[in-house]
Amino acid sequence: MRASDKAGEALLAVTDLSAGYGGMPVLRDVSLEVRHGEILALVGSNGAGKTTLLRALSRMIASDGGIRFAGRDLAPMTPDEVFGAGLVQVPEGRQLFDRMTVEDNLLMGAYRRADQASVRGDLERMYALFPRLGERRRQLAGSMSGGEQQMCAMARGLMAKPQLLMIDEMSLGLAPVIVEQLMEVLATIRTEGVTVLLVEQDIHLALSGADRGYVMETGAIVHGGDAKALIDDPAVRKAYLGL
């Protein structure tokens, strides 16, 4: 079945997920779904629990509740198994291998892939998608600008051939013109069958580039639906956009 045939069906379904750190609850009964081939925005202010939710989904922290991804139950899996299942995270702060070259960083993304023969071709595809990385493939990742590092982190994630790419705070600290480029890249990879979960503090940016969105507040989802409708929703506008 091609990706387009499944459009609209749930790729990731989260039901009543609760999680926290050392007995301190952060997430309360979060339920959401990510559909095949969409760009989903998860927005909310600082401390709303967005990153905690991503960490629970990739099983870096323990949680209660159901997580079904592409027909499999993720709850009992370890982080490397989740990664192997095709749920890949581009973490906040990028977490690049600073003293390794751009190319080695990308190869690290393909680390667990069985089809090592096609890795070369995928590298070239990444360099076509992010020409700047192609120019700097021999440069140490830590010596690049913030925008280039974010490109490197996204390319590294894509090298894993994810079904769902979860990007945490993509726009943080970047110039608007770079953010615009990155949003265009998201639109491109979506046409290639990669579903995107975009976690952002910049609510307007995320919702204007997404198909659907969820708004989080103090560990719970308070609004959800079509992204355009959310931007026009008076409650969201008042609370988050200062309009």
Binding site: P79, F83, Q89, Q95, D98, M108, Y111
Partner: peptide
């Protein structure tokens, strides 16, 4: 080896290695 590449990744950025599916 892949194993050694994984170890170097841990040395360079353990969080990053974990996110990239290294156990």
């Amino acid at each position: 080896s892949k194993f050694g590449f994984g170890l170097i990744a841990i040395r360079e950025n353990e969080e990053g290695a974990a996110v990239m599916g290294v156990n």
